[in-house]
């Protein structure tokens, strides 16, 4: 990396935006140190509060625009939980709403120029992905006891095939949290890194118009991805929750 810096003009540091730094001073990053992660996580909390508490504070029967945003977000996730996880999944709605609102706010805050994207870090998404995995698995065993394992024993398939299918099901079940978390972090990281690479090319006069056009296009795509990945993460959580609530297919 240091070598690239010597090449006049073209400076590639697409990954520097993901570095975790202490907010105050230059010391080491201990687990409790307030860092730029802390700052942007706090901002996402404020964004959630703004959207779901401040905007709908009027509590009008005929909603204002701000109130509509909160109510649409509420209705969107509520309906998703109800449709995907079923009626008895509704009592887990606050947890799923928490995940969705956090991811969507963090993703969009990450799109601000110069921002630190918390959801681009595998440590962050893995906590949520494995959190969902363990919560759903424990919930399945608590609700159904040992018969939760029937999730892997597909009674609709012919008997000789069942052990093979069970093996595949078990493998895919344990891959879930990995794909769940890497999907979100990977999408976030890739888009931001690509924007940074194009931004570096903007320093070269000849291709800078092309580069700036590409940044604009990728940015538009990232706005889309920011929402879609939050949506995908949430709906997959609902799907896993449904498996825990109704393991008998």
């Amino acid at each position: 990396m240091a070598d690239e810096k010597a090449e006049g003009g073209l400076v590639f540091h697409p990954m520097d935006q993901f570095i975790v730094k202490p907010l105050f001073g230059d010391g080491a990053v201990a687990w409790y140190t307030p860092t730029n992660v802390t700052f942007w996580l706090a901002l996402s909390v404020l964004a959630v509060v703004l959207i779901l508490v401040v905007l709908p504070r009027g509590r009008a029967v005929v909603p204002t625009r701000g109130q509509s945003i909160a109510e649409l977000a509420y209705g969107f996730i509520y309906k998703m939980v109800e449709d995907v996880a079923g009626k008895d999944g509704v009592k887990y709605f606050p947890y799923i709403m928490t995940l969705f609102m956090f991811i969507v706010c963090a993703n969009f805050l990450g799109l601000l120029p110069g921002a630190f994207t918390t959801t681009s870090h595998i440590a962050v998404t893995a906590v949520m992905g494995f959190g969902v995995f363990f919560a759903v698995t424990i919930l399945g065993f608590v609700l159904h006891g040992i018969s939760f394992l029937k999730l892997f024993w597909i009674s609709a398939a012919p008997l000789p095939l069942r052990p093979i299918l069970a093996l595949i099901e078990i493998i895919s079940y344990f891959v879930r949290p990995v794909s769940h978390s890497i999907r979100l972090a990977g999408n976030m990281m890739a888009g931001h890194a690509v924007i940074k690479v194009f931004a570096a090319f903007a320093a070269v006069t000849l291709i800078s118009p092309l580069s700036i056009g590409a940044i604009t296009a990728i940015y538009a795509l990232e706005v889309l991805v920011a929402f879609i990945q939050a949506y995908v993460f949430t709906i997959l959580t609902c799907v896993y929750l449904r498996d825990a609530l109704h393991p008998h297919h």
Partner: peptide, 13 residues
């Protein structure tokens, strides 16, 4: 850095 991120994320959530 992971410990730091996990710690603050859990608090946030």
């Amino acid at each position: 850095w992971m410990g730091n991120q996990v710690f603050w994320l859990v608090i946030t959530l």
